[in-house]
Design a protein around this nucleic acid. Structure first.
Lengths: 200, 200
DNA sequence: CTGGCCTCATGACATCCGTCATCTCGATCG
DNA sequence: CGATCGAGATGACGGATGTCATGAGGCCAG
């Protein structure tokens, strides 16, 4: 019997998944939670064989939860995500998750993936893997990403500057290099592009 | 027996929902599809008693599909959504959908909502309804919304202008009034704010 | 240790953008 | 029929923004 913790903020999907998985004779869901912090606690207290985490779970996202679970010597982690962006896959694999599954995968296949992971295998959605291999890596430095993140909401440069504790001129220089690297002509387009690639 | 068409681009949720609904003795899913256009066609050919549509379905979203289904004298529509923004609820109700359900609703309750709708009742998530009543209405005109939508990706004004077939100066005037109405100082902040309110 | 890369900064310059006043042209309404 | 209003456009002005040159300091690899 494989014990599972399921974490997803969408109660509809979470509940449906739990019901489906419990129908399998060799699977049992030992806990279901709605955010990343609760997932970490549930894994610590229930000691499941597998943790299934949604990636997008405000406030604490699944990647952070996976990192903490794995750092604590927890069970293998399966990450489920809605927006399967290549950059996220890289980050997930570097953290050490065992499987990366977009929500476009049929629900029926999840049970099989869980068994595979339980047997020590890994699973990565083929389509995302392909695009992750062909897509170029994120060309931005950590600081540049931080500044681009601060620019996300469309605020004027002066506000971005005070948010990241920099001189406005410095911020403009950073954004200028970022835009050059991304091949766009406004910082807002840069933020949009980086978001679509999963870099911020 | 209540026949149902389920439309959702997330195969995982869609499949799980279909399995759960089919477990109910009085419900049967007659078709499941992955986008809005297919939903309209499936309803036309299968003539179900209820259509369950996801709101976010690229390329054709659920609201447009609901509109076309209801305009064609189709069955009652239940809209399911991930981001339950108040502005969307207004638009959905004005189109004539029978129920508005966020994905934070437990999957088990969906069957009950389907029966309610089949009996001629309507259902609106209480939390969204409350915020829709307290939140202020969208102050933007249809044309302004269209232009703001074109500005979403951060493109320069010249590109926005050619996208909506207007003179650049006119676009700037529109964006200026939009920003004034929304109380922000850049068009990008305006797009961001409008998005968070569910207006675009 | 030296060159290279990253971070942070300043100043100058050319656009771009937001604001405002004003205009035309249909459509609508009294 | 004249008045009015909305959509669309123009031009001017000042401030915001993108670009570039330049430089200082820190850190790491060769």
């Amino acid at each position: 019997m494989i014990g599972i913790v399921v974490a997803d903020d969408e109660a509809m999907l979470r509940g449906a998944l739990v019901s489906l998985l419990n129908l399998e004779p060799d699977l049992t869901v030992v806990a279901e939670v709605g955010d990343g912090d609760a997932a970490v606690k549930a894994v610590a207290s229930h000691r499941p064989d597998i943790a299934v985490l949604d990636l997008e779970m405000p406030p604490a996202d699944g990647l952070v939860a996976a990192e903490r679970i794995l750092a604590a010597g927890g069970p293998p982690v399966i990450l489920v995500t809605r927006h399967a962006r290549p950059g996220i896959l890289r980050r997930a694999l570097s953290v050490g998750v065992s499987a990366f599954v977009p929500k476009t995968t049929p629900a029926e296949r999840l049970a099989g993936i869980i068994r595979d992971v339980h047997d020590g295998r890994r699973y990565v959605d083929p389509e995302i893997a392909a695009s992750a291999l062909t897509e170029n890596d994120c060309p931005l430095t950590a600081r540049e990403l931080e500044i681009l993140r601060a620019a996300r909401t469309g605020r004027p440069i002066s506000e971005i500057a005070s948010a990241v504790h920099l001189a406005p001129g410095t911020v403009r220089n950073y954004l200028s290099t970022i835009m050059a690297k991304l091949g766009v002509s406004t910082r807002h387009a840069a933020a949009h592009a980086a978001w679509e690639q999963g870099w911020i």
